[in-house]
Design a protein around this nucleic acid. Sequence first.
DNA 1: CCTAGGATTGAGACCGGACTCACATCGATT
DNA 2: AATCGATGTGAGTCCGGTCTCAATCCTAGG
Lengths: 360, 360
Amino acid sequence: MNSDASRRRDVTVADVARAAQVSKAQAARALGNYGAVSDDVRVRVLAAAEELDYRPNELARSMNTGKSHTIGVVVGDIENPHFGLATRGITDTAKRSGFNVILINTDEDTGAEIDAVRVLLDKRVDGLIVAPASSVETQHLRRVYESGRPLVLLDRKAPGLDVHTVAVDMEGISHDSTTYLISAGHRRIAFISTLKTVGPYWDGMQLDSSQISDRRDGMKRAFVEAGLEVPDDLIRLNAGDAESIKKITRELLQRPDPATAIIASDGLIGLSVVEAIQELDLSIPQDVSFLMYDDFAWTRLTTPPLTVIAQPVYDMGVAAAEALIRQVEGRKMPAADPAFMAELIRRGSVAAPKAIDVGH
Amino acid sequence: MNSDASRRRDVTVADVARAAQVSKAQAARALGNYGAVSDDVRVRVLAAAEELDYRPNELARSMNTGKSHTIGVVVGDIENPHFGLATRGITDTAKRSGFNVILINTDEDTGAEIDAVRVLLDKRVDGLIVAPASSVETQHLRRVYESGRPLVLLDRKAPGLDVHTVAVDMEGISHDSTTYLISAGHRRIAFISTLKTVGPYWDGMQLDSSQISDRRDGMKRAFVEAGLEVPDDLIRLNAGDAESIKKITRELLQRPDPATAIIASDGLIGLSVVEAIQELDLSIPQDVSFLMYDDFAWTRLTTPPLTVIAQPVYDMGVAAAEALIRQVEGRKMPAADPAFMAELIRRGSVAAPKAIDVGH
DNA sequence: CCTAGGATTGAGACCGGACTCACATCGATT
DNA sequence: AATCGATGTGAGTCCGGTCTCAATCCTAGG
């Protein structure tokens, strides 16, 4: 009774028009729901389309509307729940507005990011959301901006680029949490990040990531305000895989003048740090205090539950997508970027250090 | 010195051709690197393209090659690290072969999945990877198959659909781990899943998800082999958000005839189950044994570390992408789907139940 | 010196929709 | 009955590439 559906070529408006005995233009109008179409024609065309199982070719449609209803999202690592959640916020919002998402993972490599941006531009996405690997190397982002296609940055800022940016106030929360540690009695506070740099950290070093840079500044301000000096020797960058993080952790805790508190720059790092601490048979917070960025659910399950810095990641994804789509649709942006606030959630991993050595 | 780059309209082959003083056809050939082009023309065209900062419009290209070099990926929840990792395997592999990924999240809703598939088909993706929400409602998948576009299933099977499927042998691992619990002395073994069904579980009930269905079968076989009966009253489906999972956990542990071991169907569920157990002030494994699917890194950090069923999720993502791309490129598939094996990783969350009541 | 055959080249069709424009149609206005 | 504005309608162009095909160029063989 029903015709064989699996034709080689796709059904096109022309096919539908022929079946409905009308011109291609009329069929297109009826199908696309635009222009003037008589009821008679509309009914016939729709029936024919149904019968033939017609599906519009979005590629062709995009080509002459100039809109692809697709946004490109470039993140460092979707495997990281931080980005997973942000991506979820983005895709949920995009879907709600009828947009699709092309996702590209850069592995935090600027080269890959440059490629990603180029590819997305070539695919004529309507806009881009990028979590830039570097806040310094931003030529490719500038090119997006100049191409006229909307761009929204997520998580990290790019100084000098006049682009809507969705990020939390890192300097502030870093300051506050460092102050929290200092007032608990800590002086030897370590900070571990995977940010890649050419050499080891030194005071005043330029940091490619605005996120890390801001955190450093916040720490510094907290120490200065307390009349103390930042323990630069405990700021450890270039952490890599789990093993290298554990190695760094061991070094920090087994040196003559060990760290009494460790701040992990994200949840993935924190995981390995905690594991290393456990392997050393040290306990948190008796032997060492611990604090990490990212409020992953599992931080409530460890003994003790971990004190973390929670960021409204999902909401930030939503905000980024909303801002982007607003721009794509030509609506104006609010003048200022809304500031998202991170929150220090005190659970049980911070206590006074074993032996308080108030230097001076 | 340099011309103003930010033109309104994009630069096209026609523009390049004009600048290079050759025909559009020749410019296209030089740019697309096909057909016969003299060195002279090639050099001029490439120089002009460089000068004008020409970038091909992939949409237009896709339209008449029929290939979009894009694959669609439909998953239930990227926020779930399980899918995050699988997605990572897919995107890594896709990138390596020059493919892009359009990601759509369905929230495990079949309706959303149907839409997703339709949208991706309309966008003329070269192929699809789907982690189907239901193993029963698969009309939309059948339609993909019939449309001639390659399709690969991930995680869950769809009986009756002759499609390459990348999944682990759930029946086997479920049987083995249940046997492990039984031999540790457990009889009251609970199983919690978020699978939605119309009513509560009963023996022989048809389960929409092949994954859950296979696990049930494996459990059943283990019990039967041990000459025991499956405690159907402890199989709890329709778990939802964290709160509902906790509620179910409490019910299981506070009933007159409580569960002595709980199996969580995935890492997200496991998280809430463990949290609920902690909130009840019960300890694992003294008061209740615990086992969960998904070997998330944090399971090593809890006290005790959790016994889990590890699945090679990343590799499965890679395999799915490779299989799909192989089909897209017209190469034949190996006859059989390679079987991925899950592995029971015994850490510390399973022990003998408090009071062994060997019913008989 | 003439010519066959491969290398080049440009004109134009085509992919599948959206959209412009000129040309009906038709009821309503006066 | 002539006129006018509001639909309806179909032919054909365009988007930005790819690709076919016939015409033109060259160069070596005869």
